Simulated scan of single mutants.
Amino acid sequence: MRKWFSATEIRKSELIVKEVLAFIDENEAQTVSMVDDILGCPHEEGIDYPEGEHCPQCLYWKGRDRFIDRIS
């Protein structure tokens, strides 16, 4: 597993796209899955904030079901 970070729109970074493609190639991936939208904040539950709580840095996602994009 590898993570990429950017202060700007990461999906439009030519450098990061090249690195992701190289990572996929280096690991001989047979299949790749991706989504066409952002599925949540970049902070990790249990690492950046306690499990079962909302991210205190990204209040937009508080109470929101990121898979169906509505307030739960």
Rank of each mutant, 00 (worst) to 15 (best):
A29R: 08
R66E: 03
E28A: 12
L59V: 13
H54T: 15
I38T: 03
F23Y: 15
K12Q: 08
V20C: 01
L21S: 09
V20F: 07
S33Q: 11
E44P: 03
E45P: 02
E28L: 14
F5D: 01
K12R: 05
I47M: 15
E19L: 10
S13Y: 01
V20N: 00
V17G: 05
G63M: 01
I16N: 04
L59T: 11
V32E: 03
G46R: 13
N27K: 14
E19Q: 10
G40T: 00
D36E: 07
R66N: 04
C55D: 15
E45C: 01
E45W: 01
D37S: 08
Q57I: 11
E9F: 00
S33C: 10
E28R: 13
E53H: 12
K62H: 09
E9H: 02
Q30S: 14
E14Y: 06
E28W: 10
L39D: 08
C41K: 02
W61C: 00
W4A: 02
H43Q: 03
V17D: 03
C55K: 12
K18S: 10
S13G: 04
P42N: 12
H54W: 15
I24H: 03
M34P: 02
R64W: 04
H54N: 14
I10D: 02
P42Y: 08
V32M: 03
T31W: 08
G52F: 14
S33P: 02
E9A: 00
D25W: 15
E45I: 01
I68Y: 04
G63F: 06
W4Q: 05
R11M: 06
P42T: 06
C55M: 11
A7R: 05
F5V: 02
G52D: 14
D48Y: 08
S6A: 08
E51G: 12
S33Y: 07
E44L: 10
S6W: 04
E9L: 00
V17S: 05
S33H: 11
L15A: 03
Q30N: 13
Y60C: 06
V20A: 04
W4E: 03
M34A: 07
T8F: 03
F67V: 01
S13A: 05
L59S: 10
C55F: 13
F23V: 07
I38A: 04
N27F: 09
W4N: 07
I38L: 03
A22Y: 12
V32Q: 01
P56M: 11
S33G: 12
E19Y: 07
D37I: 06
E45Y: 01
I24Y: 07
S33F: 09
G40K: 06
E51I: 15
C55H: 13
H43W: 09
T8N: 06
V35M: 04
V17W: 06
C58A: 11
C41G: 08
A7S: 07
I24R: 12
P42D: 08
S13C: 02
F5N: 06
S33M: 10
Y49W: 13
D25Y: 13
V17F: 05
E51T: 15
K18C: 03
G46D: 14
S6R: 02
E26Y: 13
D37K: 05
L59P: 06
W61R: 01
F67G: 00
K18R: 10
F5M: 10
G52Y: 13
E19K: 11
V20E: 02
R64G: 00
V35N: 05
